[in-house]
Design a binder for these strands. Structure first.
Length: 533
DNA sequence: AACTGAGACAACCGCGTACAA
DNA sequence: GTTGTACGCGGTTGTCTCAGT
């Protein structure tokens, strides 16, 4: 197709000729104004270039323009020859072996495309670069690490060796991507500072101390999966909140209008359910998994830098290498941009696999009911355990400063547009992101708020996808069948009382103040009911 | 059918470096 | 040592295709 267009251009006269473009590689001091063509090469131009190289060999590219009558700058000629015309070029998609090699090489070398191409006969640096960038983008979107663990470890070892031998350059290179992430991050922040109030969604600059900690933590995996983040990630950041929507606000004709919740509920929630920042317990990276929208009113003026700010923007680290601290018993889930992404790019992470392979995850609503009923017994068991110990999670009480930080953190990710707010708090609870199948006993937590009347019931389940489907939830806003089913499910999941409340909320007859939410972290979904707000 | 977003690919641009005059 | 030229490299941008909505 592209070639066809070029053929046409062959016949038409080059409308992409740029007048007065001097060859930036030196025109031999002729001083004459040379009209150099830009844009795609035509087959005629290719033929001229090939013919010239055959006769004169490679090099002296400016001579091509002079002697062969090609209206292209030497630089362009060299590029065209190197990337497309020279013999022994390997065309077509990369083989699996090549892809693996590229990954390994990149782990060792970083963005040294030319050096990498030397290891891949017939492949050009440009080709490799394009491949890698596309791959990185894709994996970033999917929340996958840049390097797979098997590639990471040996590569890092070699990287360490090269550090000691390469001296300054090698050492610097090791953190290239990592540093790059932060540099770009800063750039984003800067750009946002200029537009304060316009984009309240941008994370704050990472705390340098956390950055250092990350480096320490990454000591054995420093090369792993720091995906470079570029400005388009503004968009990505917004998307990244999608998995954590709260259906209580899914359709404004359901419970409260979202603005109402944001204005009246968020502060209460934040103040009532003080959950210590995950950072206080361990690396920020795990906590990054489960942040989502803020319930704040979108007023970010009081935001202050918090170390968790990196979580959405920054890297999904190589899980096996990360000290998870005390925040969960299973590896953290990768940062996902959206449920769609997750579905689109099923992750190899073991926990995910177990989820995906679960027959309960077919998204059928019946499965939910079945699942819920199956779980109800174990839920009871858990409720007993929890009530025996404490109704509040130890360590989840936070002092006011922590709360403020938390609140700020939430504000940082506030999306004034999105109606998905209520699950923020839910997702702040790392513990609930871990149970993932019926084989595991679901976590069922109740958080006590500051007020005696405030409770938060959280249930962690493998939530059928259908409940996360916005369309479906929209349907649910009516009095249709889905609502009944959902209420049934709620009854089983939460008990009759809460389910009744839920039903009242859905049909608008509720007299109590509750916020319902469904949260999703990958396939680990949770539901919560916040009472007494 | 029109629109949109993502992916793949090609080319350009700016910068750094090597080298000769 | 300085300057100009050629070249290589890496980052970025533009274009086209395709799939999904």
């Amino acid at each position: 197709m592209r070639r066809m267009k070029n053929e046409i251009e062959d016949e038409m006269l080059p409308n992409n000729m740029t007048e007065s473009q001097l060859n930036d590689e030196g025109n031999g001091g002729s001083g004459s104004i040379v009209v150099l063509k830009k844009g795609p090469w035509t087959s005629a131009e290719d033929a001229i270039l090939v013919d010239y190289v055959k006769k004169h060999g490679e090099g002296n590219w400016n001579a091509v323009q002079k002697h062969a009558g090609l209206s292209r700058c030497g630089k362009s000629c060299r590029l065209r020859w190197a990337n497309h015309l020279r013999p022994n070029l390997k065309k077509g998609a990369f083989t699996a072996q090549e892809e693996r090699l590229i990954t390994e090489l990149h782990a060792k070398m970083g963005n040294k495309w030319a050096r990498m191409s030397a290891h891949l006969p017939g492949r050009t640096d440009n080709e490799i670069k394009n491949y890698w960038n596309t791959r990185a983008k894709r994996r970033q979107r999917a929340g996958l690490p840049l390097y797979s663990p098997e590639v990471c470890s040996p590569a890092v070892q070699e990287s360490h060796q090269s550090q000691s031998t390469d001296g300054v350059n090698g050492g610097n290179k090791v953190h290239h991507d990592l540093l790059n992430s932060y540099e770009i991050h800063d750039a984003i922040i800067d750009s946002v500072k200029d537009n304060q109030g316009i984009s309240p969604y941008v994370p704050e600059p990472p705390d340098i101390s956390d950055y250092n900690n990350m480096l320490k933590g990454l000591d054995s995996s420093q090369y792993c999966n720091f995906t470079s983040s570029t400005s388009p990630n503004h968009k990505r950041l917004r998307e990244s909140t999608m998995p954590f929507f709260g259906s209580s606000c899914m359709s404004t004709n359901l419970f409260y209008p979202f603005d109402h919740i944001r204005a009246n509920t968020s502060d209460k929630i934040a103040q009532s359910f003080g959950m210590q920042s995950p950072l206080d317990h361990g690396p920020s990276l795990h906590s990054s998994m489960c942040y989502s929208h803020s319930l704040s009113n979108g007023n970010s003026s009081t935001s202050k830098p918090t170390s968790e700010a990196v979580k959405l923007e920054l890297p999904s680290l190589q899980y096996p290498e990360i000290d998870l601290g005390s925040w969960g018993t299973s590896p953290p889930l990768p940062l996902l941009d959206s449920v769609d992404d997750f579905i689109k790019y099923p992750t190899p992470i073991s926990t995910m696999e177990s989820d995906c392979s679960s027959p309960q995850n077919n998204g059928l609503l019946d499965a939910l009911v079945y699942q819920a009923k199956t779980m109800s017994s174990s839920k009871k068991h858990y409720s007993d355990e929890i009530s025996n110990s404490s109704t509040a999670i130890p360590g989840h009480r936070a002092d006011s400063s922590t709360l403020n930080m938390y609140e700020t953190e939430l504000e940082d990710y506030a999306d004034p547009v999105s109606p998905f707010g209520a699950t923020s708090i839910l997702n702040e609870c790392p513990v609930i992101a871990n149970a993932n199948s019926l084989d595991e006993t679901p976590l069922d937590q109740t958080f006590n708020g500051n007020s005696e009347n405030q409770t938060m019931s959280v249930l962690n389940i493998t939530w059928p996808d259908i409940l996360l489907d916005e369309d479906w939830l929209q349907q649910d806003s009516g009095n249709g069948k889905n609502q009944t089913i959902t209420t049934d499910a709620m009854s089983t999941l939460f008990g009759d009382d809460l389910a009744t409340d839920y039903k009242h909320m859905t049909d608008g007859t509720s007299k109590s103040s509750q916020v319902w939410g469904f949260g999703s972290c990958a396939r680990n979904h949770s539901a919560f009911c916040l009472s007494g707000v």
